[in-house]
Structure formats: C-alpha cells, structure tokens
Design a protein around this nucleic acid. Structure first.
Length: 478
RNA sequence: GGCGGCAUGGCCAAGUGGCUAAGGCGACGGUCUGCAAAAUCGUUAUCCCCGGUUCGAGUCCGGGUGCCGCCUCCA
C-alpha cells in the first residue's frame, strides 16, 4: 500500500509522489487575523499538522508552511473600529492562535510567513505577470486578466462563462473583465500601505499565498491545503497567478478540509455563529478537542455539537485506560517466558493486524476516523484477552511491548496525547481522603453500610471515585 | 439560477463491488461490589426512495427526495 490522496482536478484518489524524492513541501492557508481563532480555523490547522505528522512517519522530510494574512480590509476595519494600528490587532490574534494551536498539540509549522513581510516577493511576481501580459495596471489596481490563463476554473470545476452573473455589479475601477481580480490595490498615503512600481497600495488577498508558497516550497508545492471555502476563488486565483507567472504546476495535491457547521449553517466570523477556540479550551480538555476533530474525515463537513465533545471524552478515556493497563502489566512482566500463551499470541496477532489496518486507513487519503477505529479494535481485543486469562497475558512481555509500541505509533502519529502515552495514574491523595477511606473500610468490615456510604459521598465530593475490588478499595480521580 | 458534495443503527462515524456492514457514545443484559460507582464483557443496522448495470452493489449508472458548501470576506 502507498499513500493515496484525493485530487480535486482528477476527481479521484491518486498515489502521492513528491516533486523531490523524500521531501515534501506543503503550504496551508492560515487565518486572516482580524479576530480570534474559532474551532474551524483549528480544524484547518490540525489537518495540516496531522498530514505533516503522517508524512514524517512515512519517512518524508517535510517543510510545512502556514501563513498569516496580517493585512487586508477586514483587519484594517477591525483596527479602525478599535482605534489602534492594524498591527496591534494582527499581533494579538496571532498570539492567540499560537497559544490555542499549541494547546491542541499542533506542532509549530516550519515557517509562519506573514503577508506584510513578503511584499518584495509579491511585487516581483506581479511584475512578471505584467510583463507576460497576464496582468495590467489600471486606475484603482493592478488586475490579473483571468481570460489570459487557459485553465481558469479547472480547480473548482467551473466553466469560466458560468461565472458571469447578471446580478454582478458593473465593471468598474478600470477592470477590463468582470472576473479579473486585484493583485495590487492602490490606496491613499494616509492608509497603511507599501510603495510599489504602480504606486502606494496593498496586496490583493491571493497574491500573498502565491508568493510565499513558491518562496518557501519552490514553484510547485506538493500539497496545498486550506478550508473548502477557499477553493474558489482563493485557490483558483492563486493557481492562476502562479501558473501564469511560472509556467509550471502550482500544486500537485490539494487538501480541502470540510466546513464545520452550527445549527446546519457554516460557522464563520461574518455570520457570528462561530465557536471560539478560547472558550472551548476553557471548558474541555484539549486532548478531547483534538480527538473529536480527528474522529471525522477532514474532507467531510460536519455539524459541531458540544454533546459530541462530551462523548469524545469517554472515548478517549477508553484508549487512556488501555495504555495504563498495558503499562501496568508491563511494569510487572517477567523478562522472559518459555512458551507463548494463547492469549499472548492473540494479542501479538491483534497488534500486527491493528497496525496494518491503521496504516491502510491513513494511506487512504488520511482517513483518521478509520484509523482511530483500528485503535479501538486493539483496545477491545486486549480487554477481551485480559478477561480471558490476565495472568498469562501479563506474563508475555514481548506481546505487551509490541502492543505498547503499536499504540505509541497509532496514537503518537495522530498526537492524541499531549504528553505521550499515559503511563501511570498520577494521583495525589489528600491525607483526609486516605483517612476517610480507612474509616470506610472499617465501616464495611463492621457492615455499617450507612456509615460506609456516607464516607463514600464525602470522598466523591473531594473528587475521587472509589473502586471496590477483590483486593480491597482504592480511589481514582473523578 | 450555475457548480460541487453528502444521505449508513437512538446519536456520532468508517467502509478502495464479493468472507459475519469498523469503531465510539447511549441503551439493555452479565462480571466485579454489601449495594453502587468505576472498569470491563456481551447484545444492539442490510445502508433515503425508485429504476438499471453485474453471477454479486451501501459501494457503479440514471431519476427522485432531503441537507450542506461555493458562486461576496471566510478555515
């Protein structure tokens, strides 16, 4: 098996092959930092992180670029509203992004280029487009001539003639064609802007990604990602500019993550129905949020429901218990065994199978939902074997190690646990709770059930759950 | 209106024409417990509707129905 990725141009999954053997350049469109990140932004970032992680697992050396659009009308408007410099708004939201992305165990990309720091690259690209007559200067802006690029519309599956709509406003500002879009928007001296051969202005939205992608990944990026809503016009325009300027393929593979909806409607800043990441992080374990987002295929659209987060919590606990169970047995397992038991063999087989199937799922267009299912299959088999013959299973160090390593890979590549696999229950039991527990044990010996239950309530309120088992009573965190 | 996508058990969600349609949550029934809880085991679907292709379709094709996204800033 090898990695296959869905290609929107060919509308089918295609075997992944990087431009340079062993190396992958991937560019993901990051957020326009006009406001705080919401969970949809994080889904996009997480998709990039997951893809990178799996590619690295496959042995590729990955250059992962994710930009920040730190200038643009929406950022400027926000700054104006607040009466501060646009950079203040941008910095604040970039800081928030980093804080929240890291909380989600998203690794830092290789580089986070910002639009405002790549003006020279953009100007150079525009210059080339003008030279090649793919772009023209006019009164309000430098425009890209859409009709000059033959493949326009291919990526988003549109016919260029269908894009004209009767409702659209009249061609204005010196546009030669209604569909042409701005590469460089001219602005007055008192507005934030940069000097250019065409006068003071600001970059159009699409040009930054074209310029930065090729600056860091070369003329052809292996993977280009972003939300599905960016497919048109953003990615279509990026592609048009870059290919017209360079006469080479802009991106070999496109990864568009599906949209998160709330109440059936797309979550977005403009609709105001977004769920702020900061808010969620206050109420949920970030590991749960990550697990939740990975449990659905990234290309699917999905309805965001908090009740699913609550469920994800329980699911993740199941994997956590599995890891703890493995490590507990591993810590006590003998160095060697003479003959492998039936249950040991069964665990070894289940491990091999889970890992294979996990990889098949990941190879299939990064099917994380399926991959997580494979983890649970191993969990279930392990628990079943524990129930069947715990003693024999606990004695099989080799099988336990293999299972642990497999889990380490499967959960590790998905980065499900921020601090690595859960190894031991970290529990600080206050002396008071220990005392109550002892008191309760005595009450139980005395068959004073009312007293025992009262103590159990006290311990519960202190944040602990009592586990009564054959070997006596223990507590664990609630 | 144009383009694209999706429809799988109570909920969420995998499924690359063919052994018993993953997995999670929930529910129900066991194990454990003094009773519980926690943990765990088991049980729990023929895949929106109608046609077609095929020896065989959830999986391909056509037609419905419903939902979503894009066509304007947008992850």
């Amino acid at each position: 098996m090898s990695l296959r990725i869905y290609d929107p141009l060919r509308k089918r999954k295609v075997e992944f092959k990087p431009v340079n053997e062993g190396k992958v350049g991937m560019y993901f469109c990051g957020m326009t930092v006009q406001s705080e990140p919401h969970i949809g932004h994080m889904l996009a970032a997480l998709t990039g992180d997951m893809v990178r992680s799996y590619l690295e697992y496959l042995g590729y050396e990955v250059t992962h670029i994710q930009n920040f659009t730190d200038i643009g009308d929406s950022v400027l408007e926000k700054a104006l509203e607040e009466g501060v410099d646009y950079k203040v708004v941008a910095e604040r939201n970039i800081d928030l992004y980093f804080e929240q992305a890291r909380a989600l165990n998203i690794r830092d990309a290789s580089i986070y280029p910002r639009a405002t720091e790549h003006i020279p690259e953009m100007l150079k690209l525009i210059e080339r487009l003008v030279e090649r007559e793919h772009a023209y200067d006019s009164e309000e802006a430098v425009y890209f001539a859409v009709r000059s690029y033959d493949n326009y519309g291919q990526l988003s599956g549109r016919k260029i003639d269908d894009l004209y709509s009767g409702v659209r406003v009249e061609v204005s500002g010196g546009k030669r064609d209604e569909l042409d879009f701005a590469l460089w928007k001219k602005c007055p001296a008192d507005e934030p802007g940069f000097d250019s051969p065409w006068g003071r202005g600001r970059p159009g939205w699409h040009i930054e990604c074209s310029a930065m992608a090729s600056r860091y990944c070369g003329e052809t990026v292996d993977l280009h990602g972003g939300g599905l809503d960016l497919k048109f016009p953003h990615h279509e325009n990026e592609r048009a500019q870059s290919e017209a300027a360079n006469c080479s393929t802009f991106a070999n593979f496109w990864l568009h993550n599906g949209m998160l909806t709330v109440g059936g409607e797309k979550m977005s800043k403009s609709l105001g129905n977004y769920v702020a990441m900061g808010d969620l992080l206050e109420r949920y374990n970030p590991e749960v949020l990550r697990f939740y987002l990975l449990s659905t295929h990234f290309r699917s659209r999905s309805e965001f429901e908090e009740k699913q987060l609550v469920r994800a919590e329980g699911s993740l606990d199941r994997i956590r218990e599995f890891s703890l169970g493995l490590h507990e047995r591993l810590a006590a397992a003998p160095e060697h065994i003479e003959v492998q038991s039936a249950v040991g063999k069964a665990l070894a087989d289940a491990t091999t199978r889970a890992l294979e199937r996990w990889r098949e799922a990941m190879d299939d267009d990064f099917n994380t939902g399926g991959a997580i299912g494979r983890i649970f299959e191993l969990v279930k088999e392990f628990n079943r074997l524990v129930a069947a013959d715990d003693a024999a299973l606990s004695a099989d160090r080799e099988a336990l190690v293999a299972a642990r390593d497999a889990l380490e890979t499967m959960a590790g590549v998905l980065r499900l646990f921020t601090d690595g696999l859960p190894i031991e229950r970290k529990l600080e039991i206050p002396p008071q709770v220990t005392a109550w527990l002892a008191e309760r044990d005595q009450a139980r010996v005395d068959k004073d059930w009312a007293g025992a239950d009262r103590l159990r309530d006290l311990i519960h309120e202190a944040g602990f759950v009592i586990l009564d088992g054959p070997e006596g009573s223990k507590v664990k965190a609630r």
